[in-house]
């Protein structure tokens, strides 16, 4: 059975209209006009136990809103969200005991106290039995390399140290599902790497289901075999990262370099996109077309020096995709 099931989820926010300027501010005091913002627009998916899913989209795509609905702190305007067979907002306390949540931009640690004290408070909040707490704390301290700063107050920690502590804090009670909202935001390369490796390990070895939002593709490549992509509140893609390229209809580039300019060349298997004379760039029509097909069609007689096939960079693919706002359906 699916551990999380969303079907036809919509979330519409009503925001009071603010008028610009001083006169506008006065007007806003008396008039109540609202604009409707559709943050999540008809999203459905199922997540099985033990999966690691990346939830990707640009700023304002409705990622955090979706996480908030799955954790029970927002109610969908329509459609249903079920987590562990329950509606999260109607079973907030039961649900909260079985999930772990990390918000990259909000701290759950006690600012003035040593990290250890925050952990100990979680032991009380989640009623974790002492032996299990000791064992989890020891394991997480080693895995996240926290022993050097666990007795220091949170306000003295670097962002990377704090984020590791936040993640450990969310895992102390052995949650079945771990939600992370932009866990690598603002971290340096090394800290990002530690966090990614750790999350992948938790998912693999402990079987903890992980759902993370990000706009960093490397997060997805290293942690999540499955990717859900959204934009403007709509689902664009749900499947494996390697299928994304095909789904978004991007094509491979072929560069042919000649000893001397062979003049114009037209091919059926590849489309000429740039002509620099001695170097010509083609786009391959489909995944099925191989270089061999192109070279066969080109035939001999040209002074061909070099052949280069370029896989499109995935970031590039997504960027072009967002820019063109092509409405692609969900492809498994």
């Amino acid at each position: 059975m699916a551990i999380i099931a969303a079907s036809g989820v919509e979330k519409i926010f009503r925001q009071p209209k603010r008028h610009a300027g001083f006169g506008g501010a006065i007007r806003s005091l008396f008039s109540r006009e609202f604009t409707e913002v559709r943050a999540v627009d008809g999203i459905s998916f199922k997540i099985e136990s033990g999966e690691a899913v990346g939830y990707l989209g640009p700023n304002g795509a409705g990622k955090s809103t979706m996480i908030k609905m799955m954790t029970g702190i927002l109610v969908p305007s329509s459609g249903t969200v079920e987590v562990l067979g329950r509606e999260p907002h109607n079973n907030r306390i039961t649900n909260a005991a079985e999930i772990g949540v990390v918000f990259g931009q909000r701290s759950q640690l006690w600012w003035d106290l040593p990290v250890r004290d925050s952990f100990d408070l979680n032991r009380h909040i989640y009623d974790i039995p002492a032996p299990r707490f000791t064992e989890n704390l020891a394991r997480l301290t080693t895995m996240l390399d926290m022993s050097s700063y666990i007795d220091r107050p949170v306000r003295q920690l670097s962002l990377g140290q704090r984020m590791r502590a936040e993640i450990a804090m969310a895992l102390l009670h052995d949650p079945k599902i771990l939600f992370l909202d932009e866990p690598t935001i603002g971290l340096d390369v090394v800290a990002k790497d530690v966090v990614r490796k750790f999350l992948a390990e938790v998912n693999r070895d402990r079987g903890t289901t992980i759902i993370l939002t990000t706009h960093d593709l490397v997060d997805i490549e290293e942690i999540c075999p499955r990717l859900i992509m959204v934009d403007d509140g709509k689902l664009l893609f749900d499947g494996e990262l390697k299928h994304l390229r095909t789904a978004l209809g991007s094509r491979r580039r072929l560069k042919l370099e000649f000893g001397s300019d062979p003049g114009p060349i037209a091919l059926k298997t590849a489309q000429l996109v740039a002509d620099e004379g001695a170097a010509k760039h083609f786009l391959l029509d489909s995944e099925q077309t191989s270089i061999l097909d192109v070279l066969t069609e080109l035939g001999s007689g040209h002074d061909l020096k070099d052949v280069k096939l370029e896989e499109p960079d995935i970031e590039e693919v997504i960027r072009t995709f967002y820019q063109n706002k092509v409405q692609a359906g969900a492809v498994p």
Binding site: K68, I73, T94, A96, V101, R106, Q108, I125
Partner: peptide, 10 residues
Amino acid sequence: DIAVYLLKPL
């Protein structure tokens, strides 16, 4: 930040 308190069973 009040949302953080809603994430905990309390």
